[in-house]
Computed example of a mutant assay.
Amino acid sequence: MRKLLYLSIAVLVLLLSACGVKSNSISKVDIGVINVHTKEKVSYGMTRSEVEKVLGKGEKIGDDTMFSYEDGLSIIYKNDQLIGIMLSNSSEGIFETVRGIKVGMLASEVLNLYGSENNISAESKILQFIYEANSGKFLKAYPKTSEEIKAAQIYMYDSFIDDNQYIFSVSLVDESALVDQ
C-alpha cells in the first residue's frame, strides 16, 4: 500500500511539472502578462481587439506595431497579433509575466530563472537572454542577419536594473515575428 502511495505522489509531481512553463527556456507561452489584482491575462497571439477588451484602448506609439496601455504596459503587434510585451516602472504591483517576473524584483531572481550563464549582456545594469527555440538552447550572441533570425525562431528577454539590483523594466519579444516575412 505504501509503494502505491509513493508511486502516486511521484506520478502527480511529474504531471504537475509537465503542465507548467518549461524552466530555463523562453517560448511563446512566456510572452504574456497577468494583472495581479484581476487575474486577467493577455498573451502571445491575441489580436489587438482581444487585448483591448481586457486592457482598454491603447495609445499608438509610432507606427501601428506598438501600443501603450495604462499602468506601464506596452504591447508589440505584428499583423494585429500580440508578439511582445514591455513592462515599465509604473507596472510595479499591477502586472507580472506568466512566469512571475515583475518590475521591482531582484535581478538575481531572473538570473536564477533563466540561468546566469545565459545572460549575454556585458553591462551590469542589463539582463539579456536570447533563446533559439529550434535548438532548444540559449544563444551567446544575437544572430547577425534577418535570415538567421527567421530560421532560428528567436525569443528575447531584456531587463534594466537600478543601482540596488532591482528590475525597472521587462521586455519579452518574439524576435522572429519582427522580421519581415
Results as ranks from 00 to 15, higher is better:
Lys3Leu: 13
Lys3Asp: 14
Leu5Ser: 05
Ile9Trp: 08
Ile9Glu: 09
Ala10Cys: 13
Val13His: 04
Leu14Trp: 02
Leu14Val: 12
Leu14Ile: 14
Leu15Met: 15
Leu16Pro: 07
Ala18Asp: 15
Ala18Trp: 13
Gly20Ala: 07
Gly20His: 09
Val21Gln: 05
Lys22Phe: 04
Ser23Asp: 12
Asn24Met: 11
Ser25Met: 10
Ile26Pro: 01
Ile26Gln: 02
Ser27His: 05
Ser27Tyr: 03
Lys28Pro: 09
Gly32Pro: 08
Gly32Lys: 05
Val33Ser: 00
Asn35Val: 03
Thr38Lys: 02
Glu40Arg: 07
Glu40Gln: 14
Val42Lys: 00
Ser43Cys: 08
Tyr44Val: 08
Tyr44Glu: 10
Ser49Pro: 05
Ser49Ala: 15
Val51Gly: 03
Val51Ala: 11
Glu52Phe: 09
Lys53His: 12
Lys57Glu: 14
Lys57Leu: 12
Glu59Asp: 14
Thr65Trp: 02
Thr65Met: 10
Met66Pro: 01
Ser68Leu: 15
Tyr69His: 14
Tyr69Gly: 12
Tyr69Val: 15
Glu70Gln: 14
Asp71Gly: 01
Asp71Leu: 07
Gly72Glu: 06
Ser74Gln: 13
Ile76Met: 08
Tyr77Lys: 07
Tyr77Asp: 09
Tyr77Leu: 15
Asn79Pro: 01
Asn79Gln: 10
Leu82Cys: 04
Leu82Gly: 00
Ile83Glu: 09
Leu87Thr: 03
Ser88Pro: 02
Ser88Asn: 11
Ser88Gly: 11
Asn89Ile: 13
Ser90Trp: 00
Ser90Lys: 10
Ser90Gln: 10
Ser91Glu: 06
Ser91Val: 01
Ser91Arg: 01
Phe95Trp: 15
Phe95Gln: 00
Phe95Val: 04
Phe95His: 03
Glu96Ser: 08
Val98Tyr: 01
Arg99Thr: 02
Gly100Arg: 00
Gly100Asn: 07
Gly100Glu: 03
Lys102Cys: 06
Lys102Ala: 14
Lys102Val: 03
Val103His: 03
Gly104Trp: 08
Met105Ser: 10
Met105Gln: 13
Glu109Trp: 00
Glu109Gly: 00
Leu111Trp: 00
Leu111Cys: 05
Asn112Ala: 13
Asn112Met: 10
Asn112Gly: 05
Tyr114Ala: 05
Glu117Asp: 12
Asn118Tyr: 06
Asn119Ile: 00
Ile120Asn: 06
Ser121His: 06
Ala122Glu: 13
Ala122Pro: 05
Leu127Pro: 02
Phe129Tyr: 15
Glu132Thr: 02
Glu132His: 07
Glu132Ala: 15
Asn134Leu: 12
Ser135Glu: 15
Phe138Ile: 10
Phe138Trp: 06
Lys140Val: 08
Tyr142Val: 07
Glu148Val: 00
Ile149Val: 15
Lys150Thr: 13
Lys150Cys: 11
Ala151Ile: 03
Ala152Phe: 04
Ile154Ser: 07
Tyr155Trp: 05
Tyr157Asp: 02
Tyr157Leu: 14
Asp158Ile: 06
Ser159Lys: 00
Ser159Phe: 01
Phe160Asp: 04
Ile161Val: 15
Ile161Thr: 08
Asp162His: 09
Asp163Gly: 10
Asp163Glu: 15
Gln165Lys: 10
Gln165Leu: 07
Ile167Asp: 03
Ile167Ser: 07
Phe168Arg: 03
Ser169Trp: 01
Val170Glu: 06
Val170Tyr: 01
Ser171Pro: 02
Leu172Asn: 05
Val173His: 06
Val173Phe: 08
Glu175Ala: 13
Glu175Phe: 04
Glu175Lys: 08
Leu178Thr: 11
Asp180Trp: 05
Asp180Tyr: 07
Gln181Asn: 14
